[in-house]
Design a protein around this nucleic acid. Structure first.
Lengths: 165, 165
DNA sequence: ATGAGTGCAAAAAGTTTGCACCGCT
DNA sequence: AGCGGTGCAAACTTTTTGCACTCAT
């Protein structure tokens, strides 16, 4: 958290995106602007389908097609603004990768909730491992699966529903 | 490799599978037997497509359909004999989860190679994290992405086998 | 004008499922 | 007989792509 100051002076996601696109000879169109805006409107994890849903709610003059959304997500990923964190129900889950510290996730097998956590030792260990294999580490994806506190709580006889075959 | 002795005394994968199936009121059919056999014939990572390919090579009297293979993979996973380790080229990658120690992977972005590694500290850290969140950890999936030693070497002659694992 | 960008519909690709038939138990 | 199991083909899901048109520079 000590580098929040540095983060604070970063440019806005859409500005950052515009810069990236420029390096690729591309432009920040109104469709793309709407998408970045919506994507960074909340810090929640999301998948393409949810983003589509959020976008149709909007009352912008421009409506964006599904194709454009997928294409934009790919660009945002290349631009380093988004990253895929997991895959749930056959859908790729995205999260902001701009202005936020690196972290990993606890994924509840029951309710599907994603909880972020940070652990600096982790990165060190991975760097050590990578070095040992002459591997140039660029990133990682760690999902710890299990049952979240909420879901494992009340096993108080009879309240547990053991459905889900 | 140091605990091969311990592994040796465990029952065979197919026996283990039979036991699991029994608890589900199901049977180890000849098709399933062939599949488990082939799956455990080598310790390499594989995806459904590759397994199908290996199975058509076999000269068994029985031929198994793709559907049955997919259904068997799902059962093997539930039985705890297999687990999904990653997803490459839109395909789910499986590996043995029976008789082998827990480990994680380095995944090369260029050639797709999966390298296994083991690090005991990792589990400790994760247990600590989980405990802090009241999360009941059951497992984890860690993929370290980057460029493998082979691919980062000179451009002389890089790896090129995106389709094989 | 020129090339990037978009929407639409169709295509892909991997995996799942409905269904009729088969074969244990 | 009663079910679980299988093969086949059709269905599905998410994501990608071909194409013709539009638009900013």
């Amino acid at each position: 958290m000590s580098d929040l100051a540095a983060i604070a002076v970063e440019v806005s996601p859409s500005e950052r995106f515009r810069e990236y696109l420029a390096t690729q000879g591309k432009r920040l169109t109104s469709e793309r602007a709407i998408i970045v805006d919506e994507v960074f409107a909340s810090h929640e994890h999301f998948d393409a389908e949810q983003l589509v849903a959020r976008l149709v709610q909007r009352t912008d003059k421009t409506r964006v097609s599904r194709s454009t959304i997928y294409r934009a997500l790919a660009e945002l990923e290349k631009a380093g603004l988004l990253r895929k964190v997991a895959r749930t129900n056959d859908r790729e889950i995205y999260e902001h990768d701009y202005g936020y510290p690196q972290h990993d996730h606890l994924i509840c097998k029951k309710c599907g909730e994603l909880t972020e956590f940070q652990n600096p030792e982790l990165k060190e260990i991975l760097q050590g491992v990578a070095a040992a294999y002459g591997f140039r580490m660029e990133g990682h994806r760690l999902e710890v699966s299990g049952i979240c506190a909420n879901c494992s709580r009340p096993p108080s006889r009879g309240h547990r529903k053991l459905d889900m075959i």
